[in-house]
């Protein structure tokens, strides 16, 4: 069996009158890539802070590599947390930040860091405070990758990075992970972009876990049925409707279902078209449903929600 790197039991984190995490239990297994997804303010960063001992549990227990991470140097050296707005000492240059990281992380690969800096076109001798937002993000990504920490958290690591640079990050992540397997927790709004990199998906909403599943299982859990409205309606009747769209007499309805070969054939014979529902749509639906939407979320709410999810911070 694979070994658990993180084990969280009934974790609650309260700030004055806000419960940021509400009796969360989860495990992260060794050498997997996890997606930690959810809306802004859902509790993702709070969870990562507690796991990296930058915040404490109000209640419940947290074990990282089998131990309490708090003030535990042996544990902290094995993990790396790249925050959305990672801070560095004011007068540091990227080269100095890499040097500091090399002293802390046992698995640091300086040659890899330099190669990444070149790929991201990062000026290494410029003071970090004079870097652009995107270059600052690149510093964090390089440290996160080159540290090769056994447990690496990336919390929205791409602020200010354009699509080209983000894909550079995804390419390097897959390649380096394949050669040096480790546990990676990637928190992202850009679900469509990262979906194929993830092995497992954890979705948090308002401090609670609302989805914790294998990414492929989530992807295969729903299907979109399109065609003449009446035919679609009778085909999907009795199934849980996730969302639906209608234009004149044509309907497109997404239902929770794994269709059998016979059902697929029947759909084809009825003139219906079957399509897959993306991981992002399923995550958005789960969040909407948890926020107390109706049975089937209206398409307008869905779009607004998806826009919020995919909004790229500039």
């Amino acid at each position: 069996m694979s070994e658990d790197v993180v084990r969280v039991t009934d974790l609650t984190r309260r700030y004055k009158d806000v419960t940021a995490l509400d009796t969360i239990s989860l495990t992260f297994r060794k050498d997997r890539i996890y997606g930690l997804l959810g809306r802004n303010g859902a509790g993702k960063t709070t969870l990562m802070s507690v796991l990296t001992a930058q915040g404490f549990p109000s209640d419940g227990t947290v074990e990282v590599f089998g131990e309490d991470p708090y003030e535990n140097e042996a544990v902290l050296r094995r993990l790396c947390f790249i925050r959305e707005s990672q801070k560095y000492p004011d007068n540091f240059t990227p080269a100095q930040a890499f040097r500091a990281a090399s002293l802390f992380f046992e698995g640091w690969d300086q040659e890899f860091a330099l190669r990444l800096a070149e790929d991201f076109q990062l000026p290494q001798k410029r003071q970090i405070k004079k870097l652009s937002r995107g270059q600052l993000s690149a510093v964090g990504i390089i440290i996160g990758l080159a540290s090769r920490a056994e447990l690496t958290f990336f919390d929205e690591p791409y602020l200010g990075l354009d699509a080209v640079a983000r894909h550079l990050f995804y390419d390097h992540l897959v390649r380096d992970y394949a050669e040096h397997p480790r546990t990676v927790v990637l928190s992202s709004h850009l679900i469509d972009e990262v979906a194929n990199l993830l092995e497992h998906v954890v979705v948090i909403d308002r401090g609670r876990i609302i989805m914790n599943d294998d990414a492929e299982a989530v992807r295969g859990s729903a299907v979109t049925v399109s065609g003449p409205a009446g035919v679609v309606a009778s085909f999907v009747s009795g199934r849980e409707v996730l969302f639906e769209e209608r234009l004149m007499n044509t309907a497109s309805v997404s239902v929770r279902a794994q269709l059998s070969v016979a059902e697929r054939r029947e759909a084809a014979e009825l003139g219906l078209t079957l399509g897959q529902v993306s991981l992002q749509q399923l995550v958005v639906h789960a969040s909407l449903a948890h926020s107390g939407g109706g049975m089937a979320a209206s398409q307008a709410a869905m779009s607004a929600f998806e826009a919020e999810f995919t909004e790229v911070s500039r």
Partner: peptide, 17 residues
Amino acid sequence: TNEFAQFYRINPATAAK
């Protein structure tokens, strides 16, 4: 599987599956 993962930019475990 690693070559598939890198080429298609997908999780190596998925490629292996």
